[in-house]
Design a protein around this nucleic acid. Structure first.
Lengths: 338, 338
DNA sequence: CTGAAAGCGCTAACAT
DNA sequence: ATGTTAGCGCTTTCAG
């Protein structure tokens, strides 16, 4: 059986209170007893029980990580990598991440994840777009919350956000610099704040160069930002018979679909149509040609979310801190030859 | 504040013991009181505290999921998808997965993950190759263990294993059926049971066709089964100036590297050299030509591991049950034209 | 069929 | 500086 605090107390000839104080590094304990107790702890290979601690302190050392089903199941490892970054940072901080998914659409009768109901977590990280009803339900528990990649209005929450506006701006500027002027934009769910911001950045870049924004070469109503829909959007775009010389896809998944369509139609990338994506997922380099994109530091984002959460748990950060993570242009052959 | 069992007892006019019995579905409770109590539970939106429950029952409802660092950081989402499968199944079973990584190499002074030391889990799933010293440390805690994709000798553990032998056999047979006879095999860490079994399957297929096994076209000493090393292995293979007409890579990551090398050398796939991998990772279809492979049902494997764990926790399964998961040939253009 | 009471392992007043 | 003690919220004998 595992040793308990009593065993340590007995072995070290002190009270359990003293042991507890030593465990928690209380300063008002003499060096000798501290040493004595620590020796007993080491000798018995003692570790305090998480449950017991949790019961009395109300702290579990766990952080909930909530993702919608569709984000979780995306084939491109975008949110997965954010999770990995979070897990990595959590380990450093001696915390654990409990991951769970929720439905993408709220339905009546929906129950919150068990870990919030049963208080198995100290705080919750919400990643990507989350139904507002669920956010409201969650608000009733006074759990620290950190949003990731979802910019809901209001100021009473913390968030780690991607600099989507600048990303959109940079991507479009890059295409402009390579001499392209008829730049199409494709997306799904333009109401998503992240996508909207990318779109705004794109518009701003055009505006700066004095190029008139043309809604007719923008597709923003595909139903999900996946490969198929990228393929589909490219098809729709070219069916219109507009002369475009570049496509800026709101994410790499769609860009990959675009590339596939262009390859089928034997349209030269980037000479005839340049393509740029957004996210920088693993498989971009496998494409032919490799896909230019805007790198989003996914691992870091996960890490930042956990850091922020930890600060909030220690009351070192206000519950409304926002972190804006910069992005970076990655030039590959889908936009520049050589 | 969250309601406790006392609040329910008060509201329902019963003792807390009765409430507890109702929660745990004890049969010797009258339908009326049961109804009364359940109403109170619903009215107050009560959920028992995980910590309190854990403290007294010794059960946490959490399962540890242990992966080595390098597996975790692999760019191909293989183990990640097994994790997703586990998480998916866990949710069904009202369990939570705590993921953590451990070093790939054991070092003295290594401490087990906090969740085992602090008894935050009821059982542990070990995925991929795990240093034996760590396995031994873990054995001291009497936690149910399920191994995944790692076939350690002995019978005192449960495992979910991939049918690697048949996979290797199938892959090689497929190449043979397309008329290839000089089939190279490339791998890293041939001591890994999974890889060894793939190799054995390959050998068996050759033997069945009466083709003599040729060690000189097998490379089994690359240091890690990643893209770079696949590239490297292909290079080494072709430098030898042997006439080979197919390459069977021990996994897709290496196969992707092979494809890259062949493309650079302008060697036609599959006409001159056919290529087949193993795993069926997402990006296979993006390659040019798309990569034939052996599909490993990653999501299912994670799910099976959790199911098995749950059975063990409920004592419905012996602690030495082995599950062998079948694999499937996926024909794509890297081995067959048309 | 239900209740009283002990106790799981720990923390945090409060004493000394 | 250290010990005593009262719970934290629950399960589980044991009585009734």
């Amino acid at each position: 059986m595992n040793p308990t605090i009593k065993d340590i107390a007995k072995l070290a000839n002190v009270s359990i209170a003293t042991v507890s104080l030593v465990i928690n590094n209380n300063k008002r304990i003499s060096p000798e007893t501290k040493k004595k107790v620590n020796k007993a702890i080491k000798d018995l290979n003692y570790h305090p029980s998480g449950s017991a601690r949790g019961l009395v302190s109300g702290k579990t050392g766990n952080i909930g990580f909530i993702l919608t089903n569709d984000h979780f199941l995306r084939s491109e490892p975008f949110y997965t990598r954010i999770f990995l970054g979070a897990e990595f940072e959590a380990r450093e901080k001696q915390l654990y991440i409990l991951l769970t998914t929720i439905p993408s659409e709220y339905k009546k009768g929906y129950k919150l994840p068990r870990f919030v109901l049963e208080r198995n977590i100290d705080g919750v990280i919400l990643v990507g777009k989350i139904p507002s009803q669920i956010i409201n339900l969650l608000r009733k528990y006074d759990l620290p919350m950190v949003f990731v990649d979802y910019d809901i209005p209001g100021d009473e929450h913390s968030a780690v956000l991607i600099d989507n506006f600048n990303g959109g701006l940079t991507a479009a500027n890059h295409l402009l610099e390579t001499g392209k002027t008829k730049i199409a934009f494709i997306a799904a769910d333009i109401e998503h704040p992240s996508i909207k911001n990318r779109f705004e950045g794109y518009k701003k870049a055009l505006e700066d160069k004095g190029i008139k924004f043309d809604q007719s070469i923008c597709i923003t109503d595909e139903n999900y930002p996946a490969r198929d829909n990228g393929y589909n959007a490219a098809k729709r775009l070219l069916k219109k018979n507009k002369k475009i010389d570049a496509i800026f896809a709101c994410n790499d998944a769609m860009a990959i679909g675009v590339m596939q369509y262009l390859k089928e139609k034997e349209i030269k990338v980037p000479e005839e149509i340049a393509v740029i994506g957004f996210d920088d997922v693993e498989s971009d380099v496998l494409l032919d040609p490799p896909l230019s994109t805007i790198n989003v530091p996914k691992i870091e984002i996960g890490g930042e979310a956990v850091k922020l959460m930890e600060q909030m748990l220690k009351k070192k950060a206000h519950a409304n801190k926002k972190i804006l993570v910069p992005v970076e242009l990655i030039k590959r052959k889908s936009t520049v030859n050589e």
